[in-house]
């Protein structure tokens, strides 16, 4: 496993993609590889792209790759799609929008499925970012799935978060509900040629006007023309790229990069503790059938979850 880490650092694509696979599959020995690469991480600028499904995240990602390559930066992409809760399978369809970069050695695109595991995806994304980072990618774009808690989790891993909104989808309401408005560093109103774009712009602006920005960064709002008008779309994505650079510069100049780094390691520590402490216990409880019998006791109201948890912790935890 450590070998995989070394090879990934040396730029071996197969090793890197295999390592990400092992992280996703949660192969225990993968930790060895992460141990090896961890000291070398933290160089890339990690950009999260979030927004509801159908907002055009992949198309924007594709054009961002193009623009960043023109600016001679290497790019890594993690694109997350949902796992079907019924079958455990997944259609990973983001990559299809980014195929024009398939032969560019400076671009590495990897699709991930949410797999529905508790905290699992966050860990896979976090470690996946490390792999792309040590491969030497200058920019890492993380495209989120578009629904659920994970949207907000992106803040724990990204330096810059882009929230993509689309007119006429009730996006602003959804976004506020999901807490996306608070995590945005840049707002993008995509498909701005559609009806309702001005209205959405105004609403977002009003919301920003009532907010305060202790870090000195007021999130800008960018309007993206339909991707079907290639030239104007390309131009507006250039502007988006400028804003991304500007935000990173702001983080560096105001020593806020450190805050983001702290946020990431706290998350990673939490995830690591969970997988080192909680998961083995849960696995054993499941394997011995204890978990099922505890569930039964609870259903019968013989005891309560807190009492059971204390019993379990007394059994497994010795200081």
């Amino acid at each position: 496993m450590e070998e995989l880490g070394k090879r990934a650092m040396a730029g071996d694509i197969r090793a890197a993609s295999r390592l990400i696979r092992n992280i996703e599959d949660d192969i225990p020995e993968t930790n060895m590889a992460i141990r090896h690469i961890f000291p070398h991480t933290g160089k890339a600028h990690v950009v999260g792209i979030t927004g509801s499904p159908g907002a055009g995240k992949s198309t924007i990602t594709d054009q961002l790759i193009f623009t960043m390559r023109q600016r001679e930066k290497t790019v890594g992409v993690l694109a997350v799609d949902p796992t079907s809760p019924f079958t455990g399978g997944a259609l990973l369809g983001d990559r299809i929008r980014m195929l024009r970069h398939a032969e560019d050695k400076g671009v590495f695109v990897r699709s991930l499925a949410t797999r529905g595991a508790m905290g699992g995806l966050s860990k896979a994304v976090g470690d996946g970012i490390h792999v792309l980072d040590v491969m030497g990618k200058d920019i890492i774009l993380v495209e989120t799935v578009g629904v659920g808690q994970q949207e907000v989790d992106i803040i724990n891993h990204a330096h810059t978060v882009i929230v993509v909104l689309v007119p006429g989808m009730g996006d602003e309401v959804q976004a506020i509900k999901a807490g996306l408005m608070e995590i945005a560093d840049i707002f993008v109103i995509n498909k701005a040629d559609r009806d309702g774009a001005r209205k959405l712009y105004k609403e977002t602006l009003n919301m920003l006007n009532s907010g305060h920005f202790p870090n000195g960064w007021r999130p800008p709002i960018l309007m993206l023309e339909s991707s079907l008008e290639p030239h104007s779309f390309a131009e507006s994505v250039e502007k988006l790229c400028d804003k991304i650079d500007e935000h990173y510069k702001h983080l560096v100049e105001n020593r806020q990069l450190q805050e983001r780094a702290i946020r990431k390691v706290i998350t990673e520590m939490n995830d690591a503790l969970r997988s080192a402490i909680l998961e083995p216990v849960l696995n054993e409880l499941a394997a011995t059938g204890e978990f099922d019998s505890m569930v039964k006791k609870l259903v019968e109201k013989e005891t309560d979850p807190y009492t059971l948890a204390e019993e379990v912790s007394r059994k497994y935890m010795s200081k």
Partner: peptide, 11 residues
């Protein structure tokens, strides 16, 4: 002039 359209792969 018009840009190239790629299959967005909807399924």
């Amino acid at each position: 002039v018009y840009g190239e359209y790629r299959d967005p792969g909807m399924y």
